[in-house]
């Protein structure tokens, strides 16, 4: 394993989480000692309830993250992973462990994007957005996405997860803004838990696979917001993509028209539903794509709502 343990510990008291805390000092740090991630690592509690750290937190870089996460690391890399720290808290007798992972992404918008990747669960009132389901607490704050997972199912394990979550959230001093493109999703009919923010086509495919998606030319230089709409019992997906300039968006528009709209610009029905595209009013480099809509009327309503929200849209 190429990962490097970079914290040493010594105990001290922290009233915030009501548990023994430990100071983590840097040793062979893959990040600068004064980096935000190191600062969070230094404030991690040594214990939450009866769960105690098994070892010092371990740090991972984009190059070593695959040593730790097998099969899912691409999600974090797709949002510009800068680094992560992991810490396992050993549970008492008959209890599973609690596993903490903190990921620093390229920006707060990207941390939000990781958070939107899995939107199951109940609001947990932590950070800038949080969810709890099946022992797993996730939240984002600033450029950080935090995951805390309890292997056991007891109330005590759940309490430990939330106590740890509150401690980590308090250790993150910054907050960030939501992606501007997400705010452009019209609010009428939008299912809030379906909203995703991303850059990478692989992330799109995880949420909405459709033939020809590669012509959208998603990548690090694009921003995208996806939402599912339920209008009068019929569902559709709206994908907004912001391109780096108008020339970029125009070429995508042309390709989409050829592949999905019979070289026209009117909605067209395919075997899996209606497809359509439009430029956003006043934002020439932002394109809207309607995918798999139930009817032409639904397509026209969604497109008609673009830019029509008095408060700006979803947010």
């Amino acid at each position: 394993m190429n990962s490097k343990v970079f914290f040493r510990t010594r105990p001290f008291r922290c009233g915030l989480v009501g548990a023994m805390m430990v100071v983590m000092a840097c040793a062979k740090a893959p990040f600068p000692a004064d980096s935000p991630l190191s600062a969070i690592g230094k404030q991690l509690p040594g214990a939450v309830g009866e769960w105690r750290t098994a070892s010092r937190p371990v740090a991972y870089t984009p190059e070593t993250i695959f040593d730790y996460i097998d099969g899912h690391a691409e999600v974090y890399l797709a949002y510009g992973l800068r680094g992560s720290i992991a810490c396992r808290y050993l549970g008492p007798e008959e209890e599973g462990d609690v596993v903490l992972d903190v990921f620093e992404l390229a920006s707060p918008e990207d941390a939000y994007g990781v958070f939107t990747h899995d939107q199951d669960g109940e609001d947990a009132d932590l950070g800038q957005g949080s969810l709890f389901r099946y022992g797993w607490l996730s939240f984002w704050k600033g450029p950080f996405f935090v995951s805390i997972y309890a292997e056991g199912e007891s109330d005590e394990a759940r309490d430990a997860v939330f106590e740890l979550g509150r401690g980590v959230a308090a250790a993150i001093p910054t907050v960030g803004s939501l992606p501007a493109i997400v705010a452009l999703l019209p609010s009428r009919g939008l299912e809030p838990r379906s909203v995703r923010y991303f850059h990478d086509p692989t992330i799109l495919a995880a949420h909405l696979a459709f033939d020809g998606a590669q012509i959208l030319r998603l990548g690090p230089d694009t921003v995208a917001a996806l939402g599912r709409y339920d209008l009068d019992g019929s569902r559709a997906h709206l994908l907004l993509v912001g391109y780096r300039n108008t020339a970029h968006s125009e070429s995508v528009l042309s390709d989409f028209s050829e592949l999905f709209l019979g070289r026209g610009d009117e909605p067209l029905e395919h075997s899996d539903g209606w497809y359509a595209m439009a430029r956003l009013p006043g934002k020439e480099a932002v394109l809207a794509f309607v995918v798999r809509a139930g009817s032409e009327e639904q397509v026209r309503e969604i497109l008609g709502n673009l830019g029509a929200d008095p408060k700006g849209g979803y947010l």
Partner: peptide, 11 residues
């Protein structure tokens, strides 16, 4: 599957 490690004994 849930979480970064896509695994839970619950599932």
């Amino acid at each position: 599957g849930v979480g970064p490690h896509s695994f839970s004994k619950r599932f």
